[in-house]
Amino acid sequence: MRPKVDNASNNLRLAHPLTPAVFFILFALADGQKHGYAIMQQTSKLSEGSLRIGPGTLYTTIQRLLHLAAIEEVSGSSRATDQEARRRYYRLTASGRALLNAEIHRMKLVVHRAARMKLVPKQAG
């Protein structure tokens, strides 16, 4: 069933701040479409190993993001191998990218405010 875009937009507006799983899955998809395991590997890499999600968390979050129309499924018919073609690939939608950008912007503001309050040590160089 296709999600209603109006509802999805409404939900997206209410979606900040994002949970770590949602944020890193969107982040993992920022550089292109990926299948489930590739998303899992990328989230672990991007979070420097601090976020290790299992298949259950991965697919419940994917389901939620599909419902919010933040990501979409991509057909795997043009994949190189049979195994790759059988996998489901996902990519960010324009809404998903906007959600990710808004979250990064929110984080930047928090870091900036923290720096102004001298809570963050200044970076060398």
């Binding site: 489930g36 899992m40 299992g54 697919y59 996998r87």
Partner: peptide, 17 residues
Amino acid sequence: EFRRQYGADMAQVFEDQ
């Protein structure tokens, strides 16, 4: 319903891990 939709993918991801 969730299992039908994502079960095979979840099993695949677990095996990949």
